[in-house]
Computed example of a mutant assay.
Amino acid sequence: MKPIAPAQHGPAQHNHAEILDLDAEVLAEHTAAITAWLPVNADPHAIVDLGCGTGAGTFALLDRFPGARVTAVDSSAEHLQRLQDKASERGLADRVHTVPADLDATWPDLGAPELVWASASMHHMADPEHALRQVRDLLAPGGLFAVVELAGFPRFLPDAAPEDRPGLEQRCHAASDGRHAGRLPHRGADWGEKLAVAGFEVAAERTITVEIGRSRAGAVGRYALSGLRRMRAAAADVLSAEDLAALDRLLDTDGADSILRRADLAVRTERTVWAARRAVTG
């Protein structure tokens, strides 16, 4: 869910949208658990979803709070269009308002929401401290700000896989993380500390361990395929020739070693959520 970069077009953008849709499908129960846990004082009527992507958080929030309307904000026109199409298909178009915006630039008028949700979006911002202050100023009195972050992109393979190149996925992650370190310096930040500096009080914090296996085998396989394709594109010039060859065998959907044929796939990661309110001063 990427709220700051200019809208992209072509295969890379479509691939990102596909990953977001698969993420929503595979992690739906965990997202619902987070929305159920949120320590709201009362059910909100106005919600803002910052960096909404294709709508994973938006629709979870609409389900959790049936009397609410969500303003969904993202820089990608394709993501917002997908979200609008889903809202229409589900009969929820009147409860969703999409807003295109670069949240590292001038913020649009987002009203005075009782709940602001930012899932996997804060670390994409060039100046998250500015965004945190913006949220603090727009929240309604007593409103809640929920920041949700993954502990990196999920892992799918056992440590000993594949059999001819054990540890391949770990090396792919290390290569990808190294390439992204300069572009995403706030990934893995202590958002509790940043919230406090920006004038919030953290009301609650929770870390959820995610491990989703064969019960969602088809979706997990597609998620792994899409994610590893994206990782290959990011790290191809860093990985060894042997690792690239092994990765290509996994990504060959017609091959005997295709990742879609593996029965040992699982989605493994952690999600941490910080729920904060504007600090009382004076």
Rank of each mutant, 00 (worst) to 15 (best):
P6N: 12
P6W: 10
H14F: 00
H14C: 02
N15E: 15
H16S: 14
H16E: 15
I19D: 04
I19H: 12
A24Y: 06
L27K: 12
L27E: 14
H30T: 14
H30E: 12
A32G: 10
A36N: 00
W37M: 05
P39Y: 03
A42L: 04
A42P: 00
V48G: 01
V48R: 04
D49L: 05
L50P: 06
G51E: 04
G55E: 07
G57Q: 03
F59D: 07
A60M: 02
L61V: 07
D63N: 13
D63Y: 06
F65A: 04
G67C: 03
V70T: 06
D74S: 12
S76V: 00
A77L: 14
L83P: 11
D85L: 10
K86E: 15
A87C: 06
A87N: 05
A87S: 09
G91F: 03
L92I: 09
R95V: 08
T98D: 05
W107Y: 10
P108N: 12
L110T: 00
L110R: 05
A112G: 10
E114N: 02
V116S: 09
A118N: 05
M125A: 15
M125P: 01
H130A: 14
H130D: 01
L132N: 08
V135R: 10
V135H: 07
R136C: 03
R136F: 02
L138A: 02
L139V: 00
A140H: 08
P141S: 04
G143I: 08
G143V: 08
G143Y: 09
L144Y: 09
F145C: 07
F145A: 06
V147P: 15
V148S: 11
V148G: 09
A151H: 12
G152T: 11
P154R: 13
R155A: 14
D159Y: 00
A160M: 00
A161Y: 03
P162M: 01
P162H: 00
P162S: 00
P166E: 09
R171G: 02
R171L: 01
H173I: 10
S176K: 03
R179T: 10
R179Q: 10
H180S: 14
L184V: 00
G188Q: 05
A189W: 06
A189V: 02
D190C: 05
W191A: 02
G192F: 02
K194I: 03
L195Y: 08
V197S: 05
A198T: 11
V202M: 01
T207A: 09
I208Q: 09
I212W: 04
G213M: 02
S215Q: 15
S215C: 04
A217R: 15
G218S: 13
V220Q: 09
G221L: 03
R222F: 01
R222N: 13
Y223G: 05
S226M: 03
G227C: 14
A234R: 15
V238P: 01
L239V: 12
A241P: 05
A241E: 15
E242C: 07
E242R: 13
L247R: 03
L247S: 07
D248L: 02
L251W: 06
L251F: 08
T253N: 12
A256E: 15
I259D: 08
L260P: 14
A263V: 11
A263M: 14
D264T: 11
D264Q: 10
L265V: 11
A266Q: 14
E270G: 03
R271W: 04
T272G: 04
V273E: 04
V273H: 03
A276L: 05
A276G: 07
A279V: 09
V280F: 06
G282M: 13
